[in-house]
Design a protein around this nucleic acid. Structure first.
Length: 506
RNA sequence: GGAGCCAUCGCCAAGUGGUAAGGCAAUGGUCUGCAAAACCAUCAUUCCCCGGUUCAAAUCCGGGUGGCUCCUCCA
């Protein structure tokens, strides 16, 4: 493990050298979802961002312990559960399972540990007891609040100062609190809410405390990496720091903070109230799940990303759906990579990998380039560029390979195929079987564009007959007909095959 | 009112002091009966604007302009 990793630490606001607590090992905590409804693209984007960071660390040889929580006790969950007359914890469990299934489609690896609030009530109470005992927290009629004034560094992560916070501007301040910024650690039980016994009577945890309890339980009082969306910096992460350091007395909670940029729609943040929320299956059905993954890793995780959206209209001019142009572009790029991989696989399967020995120099650069890029604040877009170079080299060798000895060519191609997959693993892409991906893509486009496959096959046969008879006028007329149907033909030594021509984006 | 982020080719997007990656689109070419795919070539003397620091700035500093986020649940 000699690679030096540099990463952008939100606390220091700059790129710093990463020095794990234990050499070669990484303890990482990421704020996961509150599961009260189906996950949307934003959840996926965030999950993919941190999964990519985790995969990059694995690629670099680190042993990563990845903890991602599920908030299953929360106001929104209780509200939703009460609306449909279901048990809140059961409802949360249902959506947590769905969340994991959705994320798996985007090649998000399961966390090493996935703690839930409902399973950590004891740990949470322990942390709160420490805070009450040392004067960092106070009780008011069954509620327990954290006293921000007792924590001098409060606001360091977010750059906020207690004096400048506009308390009460948008939400009325609870008059029972000593100070407006104080937040609930424990909430006294109310009718219709799940509750647990505690030293302060029946109640349930506040929002922020869970992460303080879970990090201690699964990573320790001080650990390496803490991640989450930029929106969580304040107040959530700020409060986590205050609670954890207040309870345990260390001056460091998470040693490095990672925050990912947001997914925006035409510059506007996605939110349910704006109606621009798309759920995971909608995206996966439209362009395939891997297209979203590739789209994500084509951007740096810290940058805010604009998601192109285009309304589609039916014959009557009414809006009847949306298209995700940028994801369609990503899907087309995926087609290129998988087609290249398929060509490589076929070539190697037919004539072998050339055995041991030298390869063309350019075939050896992908992995080192990837290591370097990934070690520099997980720069996935650089890796994507390198992947493109490798695919191009492979196609070039496959097309002609002029001046390259036969064995060297075989070895080079086998090497490129292997390395492209190894590097793809670091980004969570190119893990599918090429044939399967290509078949799925075609089926998806056939369905989306309403193409009559039988008619295509019929025209194909007609054209083949015309070509055999050297009736090229007829053959070209048929090609024209198919082109009008968005079908592109390609003649190969083994016959004619076809693909759906997805409209280009501009 | 406070805190912070962003502005790079028609579009997407890396690059945070050493002289502008990559993708899409476009144009020309090789290949092809014609095509498609693939490959080759061309495609930002310049990084929102104005000053400043420096031998050197897209990158640092100051001032504008425009967009976004957080201070409320939010990925």
């Amino acid at each position: 493990m000699s690679t030096t990793v540099r990463l952008h630490d939100s606390m220091r606001r700059q790129k710093v050298t990463f020095e794990p607590l234990v050499p070669g090992k990484v303890g990482m905590y990421v704020c996961g979802p509150t599961t009260y409804t189906s996950a949307h693209v934003g959840h996926a984007y965030s999950a993919i961002s941190f999964d990519t960071i985790r995969r990059c660390l694995l690629f670099l040889g680190f042993d990563v312990r990845y903890v991602r929580n599920v908030t299953d006790v929360d106001d929104k969950i209780i509200k939703r559960a009460n609306e449909i007359g279901q048990d809140p914890v059961a409802l949360a469990a249902h959506f947590a399972d769905e969340y994991n299934r959705d994320m798996a489609r985007f090649n998000v690896l399961p966390p090493t540990v996935e703690p839930k609030v409902s399973g950590h009530i004891g740990e949470i109470i322990t942390v709160i007891e420490k805070l009450v005992a040392n004067g960092s927290a106070y009780t008011v009629a069954g509620d327990v609040y954290f006293s921000c004034e007792t924590f001098a560094p409060y606001g360091k992560l977010s750059g906020q100062s207690l004096d400048e916070l506009r308390a009460g501007e948008r939400v009325a301040v609870d008059e029972r609190k000593k100070s407006p910024a104080d937040f609930a650690l424990w909430k006294a039980a109310k009718p219709g809410e799940p509750s647990w016994d505690s030293p302060w009577g029946k109640g349930r945890p506040g929002w922020h405390i869970e992460c303080s309890a879970m990090t201690v339980a699964h990573l320790g009082e001080t650990f390496d990496l803490h991640g989450g969306g930029k929106d969580l910096i304040f107040p959530h992460h700020e409060n986590e720091i205050a609670q954890s350091q207040g309870a345990h007395g260390h001056d460091t909670f998470a040693r490095y903070w990672l925050h990912n940029g947001f997914l925006n729609f035409e510059g506007i943040k996605m939110s349910r109230s704006l109606g621009n929320v798309f759920d995971c299956s909608q995206i996966a059905d439209a362009v395939g799940p891997e297209a979203l993954r590739l789209f994500c890793v084509s951007h740096h995780y810290r940058s805010p990303v604009d998601f192109e959206l285009e309304e589609t209209r039916g014959p009557d001019g009414a809006v009847n759906g949306v298209r995700f142009r940028s994801l369609e572009t990503a899907d087309r790029r995926l087609e290129y990579f998988y087609t290249t991989l398929l060509r490589i696989d076929t070539f190697v399967a037919q004539g072998g990998d050339g055995g041991a020995g030298a390869v063309v120099p350019e075939a050896e650069t992908l992995v080192p380039t990837c290591r370097e890029a990934v070690a520099d604040d997980f720069n996935a877009p650089i890796v994507m560029a390198a992947l493109g170079e490798s695919a191009k080299l492979a196609n070039k060798l496959l097309d002609e390979g002029k001046g390259v000895a036969k064995d060297v060519k075989r070895r080079s191609l086998a090497r490129i195929g292997k390395d492209m997959r190894a590097v793809g693993e670091a980004l969570g892409i190119l893990l599918d079987q090429p044939e399967r991906y290509l078949a799925e893509r075609r089926a998806r486009l056939v369905k989306r564009l309403g193409i009559d496959t039988a008619a295509v096959e019929k025209l194909l046969a007609d054209r083949t007959a015309a070509r055999a008879a050297k009736d090229f006028t007829r053959a070209d007329a048929i090609r024209g007909e198919l082109t009008a149907m968005n079908i592109e033909l390609f003649d190969t030594p083994k016959g004619t095959d076809w693909r759906v021509a997805d409209a280009g984006s501009d």
